[in-house]
Amino acid sequence: MPQLRFIFLLSTAVFAVFLATSTAQAHHGWAWATDEEFEITGVIQSVRLGNPHGEVTIRADGGDWVVEVGQPWRNERVGLTREMLSEGREITVHGHRSAREGERLVKAERVVIDGQDFNLYPGRAS
């Protein structure tokens, strides 16, 4: 009987780990976004930088959009600083929008602020 309990607990733990990783993988990466290139210009309303990626909320097209920018190391590598992402600044985002109907979420490949390009994913065409 103790062996059955151990096997049950072990299989439950393995399933929980699988579920947690598959849920995280469903969002992180590019699988949740469309393949179609998308561009939007708006004014920065709020900023949250950090891991697993930064988020910038912009007001555009009559509503707020959440833009995923890079991880801290990725932003730093291309010279994109917190000051450049300050509230009230205009930003143009090139990337891919959410595949979920009506969701105002964009994964940025490249952003333009004050005419300066910040290519977060130089290996991807954008």
Rank of each mutant, 00 (worst) to 15 (best):
E103M: 15
R74C: 01
V93L: 02
E83N: 02
S22H: 14
T21L: 14
V69S: 01
G79K: 04
E55W: 11
R77S: 12
S98G: 08
T81P: 00
V56W: 08
E76H: 06
F18D: 10
V111A: 05
N51D: 11
I113C: 01
G102M: 05
H28C: 04
G63T: 12
T23N: 09
T23G: 05
F38A: 09
V78M: 02
D64P: 06
W32I: 13
T12M: 13
E103V: 15
T57A: 13
A20I: 12
L105G: 05
E101R: 14
G79E: 10
L85D: 05
I91K: 03
T23F: 10
R59F: 15
R97C: 02
A26E: 12
R104V: 08
A13Y: 01
Q45K: 15
Q25W: 15
Q25N: 15
I91R: 01
F18E: 05
E36R: 15
R97Q: 14
F38K: 11
D35Y: 02
T12W: 06
A31D: 14
N75K: 06
E109I: 15
S46F: 04
A33S: 14
L85K: 02
G42S: 07
V14Y: 09
E39K: 13
E103H: 13
H27E: 12
T12C: 13
I91H: 04
E103F: 03
R74M: 05
E83S: 08
S46Q: 13
E109W: 12
E76Q: 09
I44N: 03
I40D: 09
G95M: 09
T92A: 07
R89S: 08
G29T: 10
T23W: 10
R104D: 04
T12E: 09
G70Y: 08
G62E: 13
A13C: 11
R110M: 13
F15H: 02
R89Y: 02
H53E: 12
A31N: 15
A60I: 12
W73L: 09
V78H: 05
A26P: 08
K107I: 14
H96Q: 11
L49C: 05
I91A: 01
I113W: 00
H96K: 11
L105S: 06
